[in-house]
Computed example of a mutant assay.
Amino acid sequence: MIVLGLTGSIGMGKSTTAKLFAEAGVPVYDADATVHMIYEGEAVPAIEAVFPGTTAGGKVDRARLSAQVVHDPAAMKRLEQVVHPMLRAYHQKFLSDAEASAAPVAVVDVPLLYETGGEKRVDAVVVVTTTPEIQRERILARDNMTDEKLNAILARQLPDAEKRKRADFVVDTSHGLDPVRARIRDILAAAVKMPRRRS
């Protein structure tokens, strides 16, 4: 089984691309959805212990947690030390299940793939991109998004040009869904012929 790492900066169309991979019959692991799940379950006591006052009603209050970590790299590191081992366990289970289902290709959708060294754990990387204008427009249309928040998020992400340079495949979402579907078909056809690279 070939594992594709799907990544891209905020607002590039990565979630839509992940849905289109799933639509093509590919098992897709969604790192963000897994974070949401553990933030309503097993991660709650550990996060409350490290960041008191960031949980309420048995859930992590993402706004409060974000306020404590977004401008503090050391706090972000502590949060990752709590959350990453839990996420790794779900990731491993996903890969075992996908392998057991005899899927030729599986996709792991990880927003900070390059930033966390995740490219070593996949066979090839698919980077989703669009123009800076479309990216900004998409992001600023989101609820509670401000220029300041956006700049803080972008500061933590590897620049799009650098991601594209390092990618095995690039998907451009600037022109609607049909070109993306066609690109996914090409990527899947190429992926099944690739050697396994992940460590």
Rank of each mutant, 00 (worst) to 15 (best):
T55P: 07
K59P: 03
L6M: 12
G58Q: 12
Y90D: 10
V70R: 05
I184D: 00
S174E: 09
D168M: 05
Q92D: 14
T34D: 02
P104V: 12
G13L: 01
L154Q: 06
E148G: 14
P179M: 07
A106D: 02
V44C: 05
R197E: 02
V26P: 02
D160L: 14
T129P: 06
V83A: 05
P195D: 13
E42N: 11
T55Y: 08
D172G: 13
L113H: 05
Y114L: 11
H84W: 07
R181F: 06
A33V: 04
A43K: 06
E119I: 08
A191Q: 11
T116C: 09
D32K: 06
D160A: 10
D147Y: 07
D143H: 11
H71G: 15
A141M: 08
M145F: 07
K193E: 04
G118C: 06
G8R: 11
F94P: 08
L65S: 04
D72H: 08
E80K: 12
M194G: 15
P111H: 09
L79F: 09
T116D: 06
V192K: 14
T116V: 14
A63E: 08
R185M: 03
A22L: 12
P73M: 10
A98R: 12
V26H: 07
V82D: 09
Y90Q: 14
V69N: 12
I38N: 04
S101T: 13
R156L: 13
V44S: 08
D143M: 04
T17G: 11
A67P: 00
P73Q: 11
H91W: 14
M76E: 01
A155N: 09
A89R: 05
A191V: 03
G118L: 05
T130A: 07
D61W: 01
F94H: 14
A63M: 02
M76P: 00
T173G: 06
V180I: 15
S9M: 05
